[in-house]
Nucleic acid binder design. Structure first.
Lengths: 209, 209, 209, 209
DNA sequence: GACTAACCGAGACGGTACGTCCCGTCTTAAG
DNA sequence: CTTAAGACGGGACGTACCGTCTCGGTTAGTC
């Protein structure tokens, strides 16, 4: 998420610089906006959500939104980020393949049952707006990648995975098919797919010989 | 592409079905619209292209566009489909891995040098519009998948690939990473990636034992 | 009513000249158009009636309408003219005042119960289109004026009215208030008004001294 | 003229009613719109004037027009009302007939030389739109009627006119013929007609016997 | 306790594009 | 040559939102 000033303000606590003068940002409005965004998303879908609609639903002036977010996509992204924070739990089955499968099952489940359409909407926006794409990569994609990275690195430490394996490539080989199915909807993100993917990756990585 | 009525026009003499009454569709306008769409796309990018703009550029009434296409995305998709028709050439190197690599090099090259942004735009639309997503799958995705399918089936015939291999899954494993990089732009679609993908797939499929 | 060719054709029967070659004008379509126009007028009001709507309702091509009438107003005017033909009956009470009152009662009644809104619509068009105004004057206004003229001239012959009375002015003094109320709708076209008008006119004309 | 909300804004200090929130209506735009409407009317005639054209000419968004007026006719009516405000001057010749003649000469002159076509256009609209007709009656017709009413009432006070005369009917008898000629254009609104009308009315009213 | 600054709601503003309606013209095949 | 059908270029409609602006009013810290 990008705001015009928020970082400055966030720093003030740490740096001991006193708060800027004037009325401080209303947390009530802030949360009301995010809640409204989420609600409207569910009810009408991303395309039909408008800044004007969010403002009305939140009982807030449009300017208050524009002051803190650059676009509708940014609001939605923050709302979604808040919503999913802490939802990723790291599995610990003892081996890479098990961890991977558990992780994918969890991810597929969430995308299938809850946030799939929302993630699609956000990606849709990212495809047309480079600045937003950066935000999305920073906030959303990066954290998912690093979760996988951790799983794979654990495998390296355990000796299951060759130490010179190309981790980043491997992550692409895992998330790639997942996104492909998510976006194209031509085949399900189900248990079987999680197994197949995990098996493939295990085969790909597991040959240090 | 979706039109309101089938353009199938069987031989009236034989079938007894007479041609539709009324002035026939203008091929001049049809091509002018597609040309205008392509031109504006290059000049201004998908988001800035409007139906109104295409109509003006093509010297055509807006209604003429709305009569034959349901949305801006549909026009662009048809324009793009025409543009790329016949551009996919099937490689013949004698083995699956070689064919695959050659095919991917070709595909990556085109996406990187020419049509990447356009494909991203179309996918963006497909993510928000299910009806359009179907069109896109039918016109664009399907033909790419069947190209890969042919390559893999050739491998089965040659005995390089196990006869019980899951071809559709394999296609996902190839196109998935390609799309993932295309959409997220976090790593290049380069020669090296083509090699890596081909190797991985060869490894994945090539063990009938 | 103005048509581009109808008079030529009308003459051909009389002059013995054989009909023009080609398919003759369809009387079926002609009457269907007028009927459709009248039907739509009643259902939706003049403003909402369109050439396209009439054509559809009549099961006729638009061109067929444009070939024979210059505008929607012309179609409506002809439909209305047909509808009212022969509806004006001349009263004969023996004196000007009685004739006038009877005539006005009849006219007011028709405008109030049936054709008021339609006449208003036609006048509306005439106010913006000079060519149509001429048609309307020829077809509609003129016949009403000559009816009154006859009544007044009968009075002159009987000696009730001064022979040098300004008949045309008098007609204006009668129809003026009638139209004024019809258009402004601020007061009714009722029996009392017919009496008052007749009395006023009798007073105005009846003093040859 | 009809606006969506009353612009009555009583003194907030006294009444305790605070001003409406939000950015106040722009007087600049308001006047620019009326000026543009008048200008376009003169240049192109009522039928060719469009809301879009007025907006462009005034340098204003279309919505700004739609926010405050329900139709093109309403804009034009307000523009015209402003334009004619204070143009009616009451004559004082000492007797009803003189006053009437002077008043009519003035009115005929204005309609003939300046505003005739505009008034016809407005009436055209009023004939098809009841809501607008009410506006027009309130703003335009009513003020003209009350001018005449004053002249006639003066006559009653002076004893020239019978005290039980039907003033409203008399007004119809005067304005009726005027409108009739204005609308049908079959005879001029000239000096002679003003005399004839005045004479007729004087005869009609001036018999207290 | 006044002053100042930034916030807030409300909503009007100039704009752009939408998708629709209908205009009057045209181009077919059929009669 | 007319007809029904219906596509065509075009113009305007009235609406939805955009992102900006301008009000009155609120809520803090600073003088």
């Amino acid at each position: 998420m990008k705001t015009k000033r928020s970082r400055i303000k966030t720093d003030s606590k740490l740096s001991g610089i006193t708060a800027r003068p004037g009325r401080p940002r209303s947390t009530t409005s802030h949360t009301a906006i995010l809640a409204a965004a989420l609600k409207l998303l569910r009810k009408k879908g991303y395309r039909s959500v408008t800044i004007e609609g969010i403002a009305a639903e939140a009982g807030v002036g449009k300017q208050t939104i524009y002051r803190w977010w650059p676009s509708k996509a940014a609001v939605v992204l923050e709302a979604f980020a808040r919503y999913t924070t802490g939802r990723i739990t790291m599995p610990d089955t003892g081996n890479v393949r098990g961890d991977l499968e558990a992780f994918l099952v969890q991810a597929f489940d969430m995308l299938t049952r809850e946030s799939g359409q929302l993630v699609r909407s956000l990606m849709s926006e990212a495809l047309l707006d480079d600045e937003f794409a950066v935000s999305m990569r920073d906030i959303f994609i990066a954290s998912r990648r690093s979760a996988l990275r951790e799983i794979l690195n654990n495998g390296v430490e355990r000796g299951e995975v060759a130490s010179d394996a190309d981790i980043e490539l491997t992550i692409d080989l895992i998330y790639g098919p997942m996104w492909y199915r998510l976006l194209n909807n031509h085949a399900p993100l189900d248990l079987k797919f999680a197994e197949q993917l995990s098996e493939m990756i295990a085969g790909f990585m597991g040959r240090p010989d």
